[in-house]
Design a protein around this nucleic acid. Structure first.
Lengths: 345, 345
DNA sequence: TATAATTATGGAAACGTTTCCAAATCAATT
DNA sequence: AATTGATTTGGAAACGTTTCCATAATTATA
């Protein structure tokens, strides 16, 4: 390696001088412009390599008015759920040679909408909004300003806009139907945050499956939560305390399902022999826990990938009109569910 | 609101024209320069507000050669461990008005070192390296180029450089000593990746506590893992299968401890009555699981905060010489540990 | 009142690129 | 040999700031 002076900044003009060409030519070499003689290209390339040239992103962005960076707004990190989505986003951005700027909601809880509208302006070419809480606050502004964005995992209960979600209703329906087919008739349900479309859809899917199978709804079997693990614990406790307790508990996400598993075990009951437990999401941990959790798989990683592709599409052709996409959920049967043991036995 | 034309870009020159002042004056207003008449300041501020002016980050960075962005390199996301650290980083960056660019290692596994050395150049003012695998690859380059960086949670087994860690040895020592004081004499240990300093330190702390308490080491009680949950499961199974199985299992992190809990329960044994389980890290989930996990708390959030402060310090005064900092670990006693039941009983 | 000292403002250069236009080189056609 | 056409290259403007220097305006001092 003959790197000359790695610490001092080597710009395009240095390269031009040393290569005996003009700025324009160097730029053309960098950007693979056709209009440059093979011989020149090679010579300039060699000089760049030797000098350890690295393009200045700000200058490039300033001139070209695109940053090759996309912003991702997440509520927090550290959950398997977000982790999976991020993985998908990250993978797809990697192949497209984009970088990722991370914004977390907890950091600027108050002025979130303003933040999205202003701060981000000029720093990123587009925005991926993961699990937005009240997207109506910004989707209007963003649409109006023609700023490219895609929502991930939020029910478009307002104006239609580019979004990626999963078939929550169908997933919950299938899972409930599966429990019924196993022989369960009293199935407890722990909801998610009912202000989220995903949560209401799952509840509706559950109810629909009961109805279709001619099982009457029992309000005492439905217990409200907000997607956090401790509510799975307390919810399951409440469900086990009613007169005719359920033989299966369907939690609206895996975190609550794991809380429910703990509650069931704390009562000295066995899973799945005494109580079946079913979750939603299929976070990586669901397969690692014992017994492994039967759950409705949301293709989280894929959702991240698809959303990213949509956004890149949008960047490429801003006039393109994209709408909500729903990816299919899938029931993953593992060890936490089985037929109820015979009551008479 | 009298925002004029939010979508078209309003620059400093527009503001200057409309405010009847020069570019320089507008810039001074923006940057709170003292040399501007109060009256002028107010007038210009009002114009900026009316026109919805937002500074262009690239132009600013280009001129000032600082981006107000710091880069964070993480192995992956979605673990509570990383999540906590990120939270700390994020909080501290928030108050300092910095933004966060995220790079994940899994994305560019191969050329990680090159990536750090080049791609990042000019995009960020400094780098936070979380759980770097082989930092020797880049610390050299970074130091040489005088690029500010701080390592988080890696044993400085090579040259001294700015880093934040925790007292792994002491934490493991204390935890083991606690188990011994409870009456345990056969304590199983599941290691982390032995290529990481943190893992070897924990093992050494465990051994030291045994030695001090005159308990002879039994190699069969030490079982190698790499910090992943399934190894906690298989490790615990192996430990339970030996002739005189342990009455307590100390896993090198919480993920493996949870795997071990599953294994113990799968054998029909109770926690902590039959077997005590002890973890390391104190991830949020440790408190949520039942029984709640006794563990050695690493102040992860604080480690993220401290590292960020160090980096910001370094940005402010590049000549400053910072060294490794170790934050104290703390034993958090919860429900997964107790005295061993009397063998004779 | 004239001069010096202070403060506020305007003007222009610079940051490192990209891109457009014009000039120059070269081969091919008449 | 002269004209045309294609290809390669140089030169300069532009992107939106910040910062430095000089000038203008104001106040204080002699």
């Amino acid at each position: 390696m003959t790197k000359q002076n790695p610490s001092s900044k080597v710009t395009i003009v240095e390269v031009a001088r040393r290569g005996g060409v003009s700025l324009g030519t160097v730029s053309r070499v960098i950007n693979n412009d056709v209009h440059v003689a093979p011989e020149t290209r090679e010579r300039v390339s060699k000089v760049m390599q030797e000098m350890g040239y690295v393009a200045n992103r700000q200058a490039r962005s300033l001139r070209g008015s695109k940053t090759n960076v996309i912003g991702v707004l997440v509520p927090d990190l550290g959950t398997g759920y977000i982790g999976e989505i991020m993985h998908g986003i990250d993978t797809e951005l990697g192949v497209a040679q984009f970088d990722l700027m991370l914004f977390t909601t907890h950091r600027t809880a108050i002025k979130e909408a303003n933040y999205v509208a202003n701060m981000v302006r000029g720093m990123v070419d587009g925005l991926l909004l993961v699990l937005p809480r009240n997207p109506a606050d910004y989707t209007g502004t963003l649409t109006h300003r023609k700023f490219p964005f895609v929502l991930i995992d939020h029910q478009g209960n307002s104006d239609p806009c580019p979004a990626v979600g999963a078939t929550n209703w169908q997933g919950a329906y299938n899972a409930t139907d599966y429990l019924i087919k196993l022989g369960h008739t009293r199935i407890g349900f722990i909801t998610g945050s009912m202000d989220l479309g995903a949560a209401t859809d799952r509840l509706d899917g559950y109810k629909a499956a009961l109805r279709v199978n001619h099982i009457s709804e029992d309000p005492r079997l439905v217990c409200e939560g907000t997607f956090f693990q401790p509510e799975g614990y307390s919810g399951a406790c409440a469900l086990l305390d009613i007169d005719a307790p359920p033989t299966a508990i369907f939690a609206s996400n895996d975190a609550m399902a794991m809380g429910a598993m703990d509650a069931v075990r704390a009562r000295g009951l066995r899973i799945p022999e005494d109580i079946s437990i079913l979750g939603f999401d299929d976070v990586p941990q669901a397969a690692l826990v014992r017994p492994a959790l039967t759950t409705v798989r949301q293709p989280l990683e894929q959702m991240g990938r698809v959303a990213t592709q949509m956004l890149l599409d949008l960047l490429h052709d801003p006039s393109k009109h994209l709408d909500r996409i729903e990816l299919p959920t899938e029931l993953i049967v593992r060890g936490s569910t089985s037929s109820p043991k015979d009551k008479a036995g």
